[in-house]
Design a protein around this nucleic acid. Structure first.
Lengths: 138, 138
DNA sequence: TTTTTTCTGCAAGTAATTTGCAACTCGCAA
DNA sequence: TTGCGAGTTGCAAATTACTTGCAGAAAAAA
């Protein structure tokens, strides 16, 4: 607990219960929209305000503890920064979010750098497509 | 002109001036948000309504003449279907949209299919990163 | 031309996120 | 341990981006 306090204070942030709850929620949920984070937090702290969740997600992102990804359809989803070691495979049929190790894209990433000077981090955005499940069904 | 009329009629669509203007705007703009399409169309046809633009983009997408991509930040961008033969390299620093041929990602796409059964079309979403220009500057 | 049916404009409605502001509270400092 | 000041919160209103309902307008078919 002391560590966690430190972790936030080190970034120059105040240690408020709301802030801690938001960070814990993001970490335990893996992938989550702001709405889902709020829901999770409210399970133990009903009074928390949605805009507080939004503000804390932004703040935590600024100090590098969480990051967000656009999984399409306007909604951003957040995850803890330390979990960003995989690609997001989002199924546009069923909406499921799968993972694949980052190495899968390594050659692709290198090609983009070598040929276009474009440095990309494939963990920061979603890869859209159709998952194995949905492919079978159709 | 007769061809273009045919092109829409063949899809079972009515040939309205608004529709034609929206399609032309998408084709001439390359990448564009609904707002930008509306702006372009209004340059020659001030009376056109924004919801008409949205509805036409949706309609045109349904018949396969245009497609949209999520270039992050909630906003969808549209482009003519015939142009969809490249990846979108979006710079998160300067916002510029670059292109790369689809072959660049072919091995990556194949790996996803082979190992995860995940079928993706990399032209449908943006690849985020930092463009060569912005990399130099920093 | 008349009829049928799709489109359009307008206005109101949503959903998701942001912002202004007064009240609050965390952390340092006395 | 108490007090102060800056960072935070809650609330309500504002904004943004898009959607929807509907009546009248205008294509295409008859």
């Amino acid at each position: 607990m002391a560590d966690k306090n430190q972790e936030l204070r080190d970034k120059g942030l105040r240690l408020t219960p709301q802030r801690q709850l938001v960070l814990e929620a993001v970490r335990s949920l893996g992938h989550a929209t702001p709405e889902e984070v709020a829901e999770k937090v409210r399970a133990t702290h009903p009074g928390i305000n949605l805009s507080t969740v939004y503000r804390n997600l932004e703040t935590l992102e600024n100090v590098g503890l969480v990051q967000h990804t656009h999984l399409g359809h306007g909604g951003a989803t957040y995850h803890a920064a330390e979990e960003l070691t995989h690609l997001h495979l989002v199924c546009s049929k069923c909406g499921s979010v799968g993972d694949a190790p980052i190495e899968t894209a390594a050659p692709f990433v290198n090609t983009l750098i070598d040929e276009y000077g474009f440095k990309t981090d494939v963990t920061h955005f979603a890869i859209y497509g159709t998952c194995a499940n949905c492919t079978e069904k159709s």
